[in-house]
Design a protein around this nucleic acid. Structure first.
Length: 718
RNA sequence: GGGCGAAUAGCUCAGCUGGUCCAGAGCGCCUGCCUUACACGCAGGAAGUCGGGGGUUCGAAUCCCUCUUCGCCCACCA
C-alpha cells in the first residue's frame, strides 16, 4: 500500500492461515506432468524454470526437459539447484526470480531471465510490454489485483484440470510494519548500503563492553542481528524525504553520488538528473546523535555532548535505530554514541496486545492527564517499570492504573500544604546548624530513615530499577514522614510540645530532600513545592544537587527505639479496633516487662503515643505481666501491653484464646528455628551472619513466647 | 523451525547475591471514623498449595530438569 521498497527490518512476519496449491505443469514433449506446490499461484506467470535438488536420484534425470507453464503457455526448463531441499514437498520448486528473493539467487546462478509480472501497485501486467495486456499476462488477467488474480488463476487451472489439490497451512507472511499490508516481493533497482564493514566495528565495541544493554538479553539480540547482517536497502519510492544524492548523466550515463548539486556531468559535461527516490527515514535518523550537535562541523556542542551516556528507547527500535546509531557513531566519529541503552517496556492492554492508535485499544494520555494529572500518569507508568517488563494497563478501567498516582500526588501536595503553613516565610536554618542534642528521638529517626532511603533510591536509579526508584521515596514520604513524623511534630510546631525549632529544621530538611528524590517520578508537583519552600525562591529542583546517603544521618539506635514506640501505638490501636472502642474515648495502657531503652523511648515520645493511641494514661507495669480485666498483647520483643477496658466489654475467654493462638503460631516458628540451629550441618555450612540472625530470631521469639506464657498464667487461662 | 522471557493475593505487579520472606505493594474488598494537611484521607482487617511434577541444598518463590499456558526476538523452506 505504501508503494515503496522496504528494508528487511521493515518487514514483519506474521503467521497466516493460507492455502497451498498443488499445480500440474505438463511436459512439453510428452504426456505427463510434474506437480509444484505454491502459496502464491499468481506469481506462476513469472516462472522461468522448475528446479529439483541435484542429489535427487529420482527427479534428477528430468533435468533438461521442458514443461509448459500453464496459462502463460510458455516452455520452461527443469533445472537442478541446491536451493531445493530433497524430500520436501513435491520435490519440484517453481522459480520466479522477479518475485522471490531466493528464486532471484537461483535465477542468477542459472543465468535465467527475470520477467516482472506485476506493477508497483500489485496489479498483474507483464512489465516488458509497458502497460499492455499480453506476453506473460494474458488479457483475462491483465490489470487484476494480485489477490483477485490468485482466485482467477486457480479457477482457470481447475478448469483445465491442472489443479491437483489445495491444502490449508499456516505460513509466515511478511507484512509492512507501517501499513500492515502483505509485502509483495518484486524485482526492482534500489540503492543499498553494504553493512558488513559497518557492523564489524559495532560488534567489536559491544563485545568489548563499550555499549551495554538493559535488560542484558537485548544485547544478545543486537549481537545476533549484527552477526547475520544483510545489506540495507535505503531507496524508498515515497514523495517525501531526503532525495537520494545520486545523479545520472543523460549523455554518457555516468552515475555519481555528490554532496552538492552538479551543474553538469563531470565526465562529458552533459545534463544530469537526480535519482527520483528518497532515502529511508532511518538513514537520516542514524546520524541523530551527532547531526543534532552541528556535525559535520566540529562544534563546541559536539565536543562537549558527544558521546552521551544513556539512550532510553523502545526495544522494537533496536535494529532500525539503536544499532545503526552505534554503527554511524563509530564510522563518522570513531566512538560509540552512548555507553548504555535502556530499553523500556511496551504499554499493552489486558490481553497483552500492544496499545496503538490503529487498533483503538490505546489510552489517550491527555485524558489521563486531565483526569488524574501529568504527575499521576508518569508516576503510574514508572511504578510499573521493573527491568525488562511490559506495562499492562486496562483502557476500560483507568482508575485501576492511575488512581494510585493521583492519590499520591494529592498526598504529597497536602504534606506540602501542612508544612508550608507552619514553616512561615523566613528561611529555615540548615540542618548542620542544629546541635545533635537538640534532636528528639523522632528527629533522629526520620533522619536515619532519610539517609537509608536516599542511598537506596540512588542505587535503584543507577541500576535502572525505576519502579523501586520511585517506590522507595513514595513509601518514605507516606509511611514514615506523613504517618509518623508529621504526627509527631504537629504539637511541637504549634508550641504545645518542646522542640518546635528543631522540628521545623528537620522537617524542612527532610521534605526538601524527599522532594528531590521524588522529582524524577513526580516532576511538576515536586518543582512547585520546592519553589514554595522558604528560602528557595526562584531555584529549580531540576538543578538542585541529588541527595546521597549523607542527606540524613544513620542512627540504628534511634531506629530501634522509635520502632518500639510504633509497636506500642500499633498494639493499642489494634486492641481499640478489636473491641470497638469509640474513636474519642481515651483508655489507659500499661507497658510491662519492657527493656529500659524501650520505656525511655515511650516516655520521650509520650505526646505522640498519647495522641495516636488516644491514651489517658501510660504506666510502667514493672516486671510482672498485667492481669487485670482488660485487653492484653505482647510486643515483638516480649514486652507486655495491657489496656484497661472496663464496663464488661472484655471477654476473658476470648483474650485467652487470642493469646493461645499466638503462642501456638509462635511455637511452630520456634520449633523450626530451633531445629535449624540444632542442625550441625547448618551451623557449619551456613555463613556466620546467617547463623547469628537465626540465633537472634530464636531469642526474640522465645522471649515473646515466655511473655505470652506468663501472661496466660497471670490471667488464669486454663 | 531456532533462540529467549514470564507464570506470586480478585486485578496489575515487586521480591536484586538462595537465609529478617512466619510471602510484599498498588487497586479492589470488609469494619469503624468528615480526628482543622489530605475521605484522592485515617485506623483496623480478610485474602496466596509463590502454574503442575521431579531434583540440588543444612535451607528454594529464588538454582537445575520436565510438563502446561502465555509472550517476545530471529528465520528464504516452495
Amino acid at each position: 500500500r505504501c508503494h515503496t521498497a522496504l528494508s528487511d527490518e521493515e518487514a514483519e512476519h506474521a503467521d497466516v492461515e493460507g492455502a497451498l496449491y498443488y499445480i500440474r505443469y505438463p511436459f512439453a514433449d510428452s504426456a505427463g506432468h510434474v506437480t509444484v506446490a505454491t502459496t502464491r499461484p499468481e506469481t506462476m506467470l513469472g516462472d522461468v524454470a522448475i528446479a529439483v535438488n541435484p542429489d535427487d536420484a529420482e527427479r534428477r534425470p528430468l533435468v533438461g526437459r521442458h514443461l509448459i507453464l500453464p496459462i502463460a503457455e510458455l516452455e520452461i526448463p527443469i533445472i537442478a539447484d541446491e536451493h531445493v531441499e530433497a524430500g520436501f514437498g513435491t520435490g519440484f520448486v517453481k522459480i520466479t526470480p522477479a518475485h522471490d528473493a531466493d528464486d532471484f539467487e537461483v535465477g542468477r546462478r542459472h543465468d535465467l531471465a527475470t520477467p516482472i509480472v506485476m506493477t508497483a501497485d500489485a496489479r498483474m501486467a507483464d512489465a516488458a510490454l509497458g502497460g499492455k495486456p499480453g506476453g506473460r499476462v494474458p488479457a483475462p488477467f491483465f490489470g487484476m489485483d494480485r489477490f483477485e488474480a490468485r482466485k482467477a488463476i486457480v479457477a482457470a487451472l481447475k478448469e483445465k484440470g491442472l489443479l491437483e489439490k489445495v491444502e490449508t497451512r499456516l505460513h509466515a507472511v511478511r507484512h509492512c510494519y507501517r501499513c500492515d499490508t502483505v509485502v509483495e516481493p518484486r524485482l526492482s533497482e534500489q540503492w543499498f548500503v553494504t553493512m558488513e564493514p559497518l557492523a564489524a566495528p559495532a560488534l567489536e565495541a559491544y563485545r568489548k563492553g563499550q555499549v551495554r544493554f538493559i535488560p542484558e538479553r537485548r544485547g544478545d539480540e543486537f549481537e545476533q542481528w549484527l552477526t547475520g547482517i544483510r545489506d540495507w536497502n535505503i531507496s524508498r519510492q515515497l514523495w517525501w524525504g531526503h532525495r537520494i544524492p545520486v545523479w545520472y548523466c543523460e549523455q554518457c550515463g555516468l552515475v555519481s553520488a555528490l554532496r552538492e548539486d552538479p551543474a553538469a556531468c563531470a565526465a562529458c559535461g552533459g545534463a544530469m538528473h537526480q535519482d527520483e527516490d528518497v532515502l529511508d527515514t532511518w538513514f537520516s535518523s542514524w546520524l541523530w546523535p551527532f547531526s543534532t550537535l552541528g556535525w559535520p562541523e566540529r562544534t563546541e556542542d559536539l565536543a562537549r555532548y558527544y558521546p552521551t551516556d544513556v539512550l532510553v528507547t523502545a526495544p522494537e527500535i533496536i535494529f532500525f535505530w539503536v544499532a545503526r546509531m552505534i554503527m554511524a557513531g563509530l564510522h563518522f566519529l570513531g566512538r560509540v554514541p552512548f555507553h548504555t541503552v535502556y530499553l523500556h517496556g511496551t504499554v499493552r492492554d489486558t490481553h497483552h496486545v500492544k496499545m496503538s492508535k490503529s487498533l483503538g485499544n490505546g489510552i489517550d494520555p491527555l485524558e489521563v492527564v486531565q483526569r488524574y494529572g501529568a504527575d499521576a500518569l508518569r508516576f503510574a507508568v514508572t511504578s510499573g517499570l521493573a527491568v525488562g517488563t511490559d506495562i499492562i494497563l486496562d483502557p476500560h478501567d483507568l482508575d485501576a492504573s492511575f488512581a494510585s498516582g493521583r492519590n499520591f500526588a494529592n498526598k504529597l501536595w497536602n504534606v506540602g500544604r501542612l508544612l508550608l503553613s507552619t514553616l512561615g516565610e523566613a528561611p529555615v536554618p540548615p540542618l548542620a546548624s542544629l546541635p545533635d542534642e537538640r534532636l528528639t528521638l523522632a528527629d533522629r529517626w526520620i533522619l536515619a530513615r532519610l539517609a537509608a532511603v536516599a542511598g537506596e533510591t540512588t542505587e535503584h536509579l543507577e541500576k535502572f530499577r525505576l519502579n523501586d526508584a520511585v517506590g522507595t521515596p513514595y513509601h518514605f514520604l507516606w509511611d514514615d514522614f506523613a504517618d509518623w513524623y508529621l504526627e509527631e511534630i504537629k504539637p511541637r510546631l504549634r508550641g504545645e510540645a518542646p522542640g518546635g525549632d528543631a522540628a521545623r529544621v528537620v522537617a524542612a530538611h527532610a521534605f526538601d530532600r524527599v522532594l528531590r528524590l521524588l522529582h524524577p517520578g513526580m516532576p511538576f508537583i515536586t518543582e512547585e513545592l520546592f519553589r514554595k519552600l522558604p528560602g528557595n525562591g526562584a531555584a529549580s529542583i531540576m538543578v538542585a544537587p541529588w541527595p546521597g546517603a549523607d542527606a540524613g544521618r544513620a542512627d540504628p539506635e534511634a531506629e530501634r527505639d522509635f520502632a518500639f514506640v510504633q509497636a506500642v501505638v500499633d498494639a493499642v490501636r489494634a486492641i481499640r479496633a478489636d473491641y470497638g472502642v469509640k474513636p474519642g474515648q481515651k483508655v489507659a495502657a500499661t507497658v510491662g516487662r519492657a527493656p529500659a531503652w524501650g520505656l525511655d523511648a515511650v516516655r520521650r515520645e509520650r505526646h505522640l503515643v498519647d495522641r495516636l493511641a488516644q491514651l489517658s494514661g501510660l504506666e510502667d507495669g514493672g516486671a510482672r505481666p498485667a492481669a487485670g480485666p482488660g485487653a492484653h498483647a505482647v510486643l515483638p520483643g516480649g514486652a507486655d501491653l495491657f489496656v484497661a477496658l472496663g464496663g464488661g466489654v472484655i471477654d476473658l475467654a476470648r483474650e485467652c484464646e487470642k493469646l493461645r493462638a499466638e503462642a501456638t503460631r509462635l511455637g511452630t516458628q520456634l520449633d523450626a528455628v530451633r531445629a535449624k540451629l540444632a542442625n550441625e550441618t547448618f551451623r557449619s555450612r551456613a555463613p556466620a551472619d546467617v547463623v547469628a540472625r537465626e540465633t537472634e530470631k530464636e531469642q526474640q521469639w522465645s522471649a515473646k513466647r515466655d511473655a505470652i506464657a506468663a501472661k496466660l498464667a497471670a490471667l488464669g487461662c486454663a
